[in-house]
Simulated assay, not measured.
Amino acid sequence: MKSIKDLHFHDSRAEATWRLSKNLGVLELTRVIGHRNLSSLLTYYRASAAELAKRLG
């Protein structure tokens, strides 16, 4: 079994945040993840213009 070197908790948190952002709005995501500062959450929240347009209908 191969192991992943240099993998940290921060990496898995970033991945989880990215995946959750597909289903939650940024304010909902803030509450789930626990960020107090919206600008720090936006580091992980990478919704594309196409994804945002799709949510708008």
Results as ranks from 00 to 15, higher is better:
Leu38Asp: 12
Asn37Gln: 13
Ala14Ile: 11
Thr43His: 09
Arg55Thr: 04
Gly25Asn: 12
Asn37Thr: 14
Glu28Leu: 05
Tyr45Leu: 03
Thr30Gln: 15
Ile4Ala: 08
Ser40Ala: 12
Arg13Cys: 05
Leu7Ser: 10
Ala14Met: 06
Arg31Pro: 03
His10Glu: 09
Glu28Asn: 11
His8Leu: 12
Asp6Thr: 07
Ala53Val: 01
Lys5Tyr: 09
Thr43Glu: 10
Lys54Phe: 00
Asn37Lys: 14
Ala49Asn: 05
Glu15Arg: 11
Ser12Cys: 15
Lys5Ala: 04
Glu28Trp: 03
Gly25Thr: 14
Tyr45Pro: 03
Ser21Trp: 02
Ile4Asp: 09
Thr17Ile: 15
Asp11Ala: 11
Ser21Ile: 03
Thr17Ser: 09
Ile4Lys: 10
Ala49Tyr: 03
Lys5His: 09
Val32Ser: 10
Glu28Met: 07
Leu20Met: 14
Ala53Gly: 01
Gly25Tyr: 06
Arg46His: 15
His10Asn: 09
Arg19Pro: 03
Ile33Val: 15
Leu52Val: 03
Gly25Trp: 08
Ala49Thr: 05
Arg46Asn: 15
Glu51Cys: 00
Leu7Gln: 10
Lys54Ser: 00
Ser48Asn: 00
Leu42Ala: 05
Val26Ile: 12
Val32Ile: 06
Phe9Lys: 07
Phe9His: 04
Asp6Ala: 03
Leu52Phe: 02
Glu15Met: 15
Ala14Gly: 06
Ile33Asn: 02
Thr43Val: 12
Ala47Lys: 08
Thr43Phe: 04
Tyr44Ile: 11
Ser12Gly: 11
Ala50Pro: 02
Arg36Phe: 08
Ala53His: 01
Leu7Ala: 12
Gly25His: 08
Asn23Leu: 05
Ile33Asp: 01
Ala14Thr: 06
Gly25Ser: 13
Leu41Asn: 06
Phe9Trp: 05
Ile4Cys: 07
Phe9Glu: 08
Arg55Phe: 01
Trp18Gly: 01
Lys54Arg: 09
Leu27Ile: 07
Ala50Tyr: 00
Ser12Ile: 09
His8Glu: 10
Leu38Asn: 08
Ser40Leu: 12
Arg36Asp: 13
Asp11His: 15
Tyr45Gln: 01
Ser12Asn: 06
His35Ser: 11
Gly25Arg: 11
Leu42Phe: 10
Val32Gln: 11
Tyr45Phe: 05
Tyr44Val: 12
Leu42Lys: 15
Leu24Lys: 04
Ala50Asn: 08
Ala49Glu: 05
Leu20Gly: 05
Ala50Glu: 05
Ser21Pro: 03
Glu28Asp: 15
Ser39Trp: 07
Thr17Gly: 08
Leu29Trp: 02
Arg55Glu: 01
Asn37Met: 12
Asp11Lys: 04
Gly34Trp: 07
Arg36Ser: 14
Asn23Val: 05
Arg31Glu: 12
Ala16Tyr: 03
Leu27Phe: 06
Leu24Met: 07
Ser3Phe: 10
Leu7Gly: 06
Tyr45Cys: 02
